[in-house]
Design a protein around this nucleic acid. Structure first.
Lengths: 217, 217
DNA sequence: TTATAATGCAAGTACATACTTACGCAAGTG
DNA sequence: CACTTGCGTAAGTATGTACTTGCATTATAA
């Protein structure tokens, strides 16, 4: 009698129920998996009655779909390579990778969910794979643009893109899951090492001499 | 009436029930997650009655623990670096990485399970983290040994190890989960690109001239 | 004021599933 | 033979949970 359910509704920044349920669903699904998450739990977390959840989304599976769809929509794939083609190879690559890592970290919930639920929810993993595919294509195109400018050597760009994506994704998910910091796996350190390695391995000219600053663009 | 349960028991290479249940449990847990897997399903897959499962392992959770423990036991971490310190940097690194990839691919079930169930089953993820930690230490020690021999430059070896592990793990899990081959992500291509990148980036001498063949060891 | 839409609440249904109990059968072992 | 050990079979219990239904409540808009 003391605390009315309304209080919790107001406390949740007063978004409409729809959005609150979506957010709650995503975190519950992520933390507990699809099977492990309960509609009751999601409703509680959203500060909403369980019935409202069903009125909005019909079924648990539809809720999952909606949550994933919405989350992937928010995940922006850089459509334009221009910003990353200025300056040194190192500068461009750094910017590119840290931008990507930002996205991955922010949306690591949905990525992890997609990975862990890939087997049981094919449609979800399709969405995810499509995203990964696009992202990979983007990175490959970035490398090709760099090669056309004479900044980097030939290489197995798709695999290189895969390495970049998986190591960033692995770091993001590890940071989410494990209480301890797996060896101070900071964004800066990771991107730094990744960029340095790629630059040292693929830069056409000695990486220490910033030759290409003017040439690029 | 036609096919007695005995037939399936015999067909399963006649291992004792214990081992068959463990194997069945691992794949079921991996494919469906802990919650998603049912003791009934595991028992069926093992060609065993559900009661037998409980008689052997007591509870579903204990079965999970046993399955994970056994799987991690089978996963060998190379204790001796010697074999990888002979020959070129490229040769040693190739061998090291492909050996590791073999392990990861063979045991990707348990790794994936550990990752996806990390949140709900802390003890499982502890086991997994311990393994990853050891493995990372191994790679780092390998790089340090190489540096002491003057074969490679300084670098952020722990992060480098992380990049190697995550990209290999990412590839293994991707291959398991997705029907399509994510861009012909073959072992050879992946290790090749990984090794080439690292060699090009960190070899002390021009990677094309195999100077160090005799010096190493 | 009245109608409509969105929500809460209480209760219930149907079903999957972890786990138990009790009993019977067969094989090996003393 | 008697005894144990391992397993199958049948049946049942308890619980969680997705989803439904019916009704009361509040706020907004006509």
């Amino acid at each position: 009698m003391d605390d009315t359910p309304q209080s919790s509704r107001v406390s949740s920044t007063d978004q409409d129920a729809h959005a609150r349920i979506l957010r709650a669903a995503l975190t519950e699904f992520t933390q507990r998996g699809y099977k492990g998450a309960s509609t009751r739990g999601i409703a509680e977390r959203a500060g909403v009655n369980e019935v409202t959840l069903f009125r909005h989304f019909g079924s648990k599976l539809d809720l999952l779909r909606a949550a994933v769809e919405q989350a992937l929509m928010q995940m922006k794939i850089p459509q334009d390579l221009e910003p990353y083609l200025h300056g040194t190879l190192e500068q461009g690559l750094s910017q590119f990778i840290s931008d990507y890592l930002l996205q991955v970290t922010a949306q690591s919930d949905i990525l992890m969910l997609g990975f862990s639920e890939a087997f049981s929810q094919p449609e979800i993993s399709d969405l995810l794979r499509e995203f990964m595919w696009k992202m990979r294509g983007m990175i490959v195109r970035y490398f090709e643009a760099m090669r056309e400018r004479g900044a980097i050597k030939e290489g197995d760009y798709p695999i290189l893109a895969h390495i970049i994506m998986t190591s960033l994704h692995g770091a993001a998910s590890m940071r989410k899951r494990t209480p301890i910091e797996m060896a101070q796996l900071s964004d800066e350190r990771l991107t730094g090492c990744l960029v340095k390695t790629i630059v040292d391995a693929y830069a056409r000219y000695a990486p220490d001499s910033p030759i290409h600053d003017t040439q690029l663009t």
